[in-house]
Nucleic acid binder design. Sequence first.
DNA 1: GAAGTCTTACTCGGATACTTAATGTCCGAGTCTAGCAGG
DNA 2: CCTGCTAGACTCGGACATTAAGTATCCGAGTAAGACTTC
Lengths: 161, 161
Amino acid sequence: MNLKNQVEWALHCCAVMMALPDGATLPAKVLAEFHGVPKEYLSKALQALSQAGIVVGTLGPTGGYRLAKKPEEITFLDIVEAVEGRRSTFQCGEIRANNPCLPKKHRASGPCTVARIMWQADEAWRTSLRGVTLAAMGEQLAQDVPAEILEKSRNWLVSRA
Amino acid sequence: MNLKNQVEWALHCCAVMMALPDGATLPAKVLAEFHGVPKEYLSKALQALSQAGIVVGTLGPTGGYRLAKKPEEITFLDIVEAVEGRRSTFQCGEIRANNPCLPKKHRASGPCTVARIMWQADEAWRTSLRGVTLAAMGEQLAQDVPAEILEKSRNWLVSRA
DNA sequence: GAAGTCTTACTCGGATACTTAATGTCCGAGTCTAGCAGG
DNA sequence: CCTGCTAGACTCGGACATTAAGTATCCGAGTAAGACTTC
């Protein structure tokens, strides 16, 4: 079980868009070139972000994508769920219902014990992701990446926005 | 991205084996019948548990599986990792290395910022699973399931052990 | 009758087909820019 | 020279092949039990 690599791409794209001046847009083509990934496929991830209301896409020449909200209002969970879906990673098959010892008209009183524990863990994962905003990630990024590279990349992007 | 349904089956099987008297074994055939799942496929999950040292399988007639340790010493994480593998759900593709602004001989100083955040969330998930032992699950199960059914199932299983 | 041996049937374990989801690619609908013609 | 128009090219958006992973199944190796033969 792996997360789609589109999740990774979407996160990186959002990080990049954060560096844009207000109102400027980046075409998927440029984002794809910057990250070295197939343009057409990356589009699907950006579409998902668009449908989730995280980014907005404008058409025509000089069109492209930009963040729809402030970086402080976008969490990692928002992005991950936009691409991966909101379903829990664990889905209960209700196999307890196949227990041959169950009386005919037995109705399960609540969710399966196993499922409940798995869902708790899933919720812990989501809570962790919910606690990190794009803005917070930007601060951490400034510490991890040399200022020179950061500035160079910023210029490279803005020149094609 | 979904966890394999084998994970669910493995967890239920461990829960069932917890009800066995010491030394008794349950064949995969019986476990499959009890849960209403294909026997041959369930075997794969049990094999994974066996290789991980969570259960032991004995051959021949009256053979089968039993827990290899005490329920207090087996965590949900052990079982999940035995079936799903120990790799993180998020794997970093190092797409930052494709940044065209990077100097030729640039070596990344540490893990990708994005990856680090995702791995933290993954670790939160694992920590949650690590905190629940089979024994703890057994207690919760006793509260969720009527005693009558619990006893009936126990007899059904022991009679075929 | 008891002990040893042999057959037998049952178990797990790994190797083999099939189906679904993820990956990658393509083409069409819509729109803004830029050039061009006309006033 | 300025304005309006038109054509073009670029954008996103959804529909279509290809590949990997998950799902399901089969058959063989090994073992313990039980029946049989022999002493």
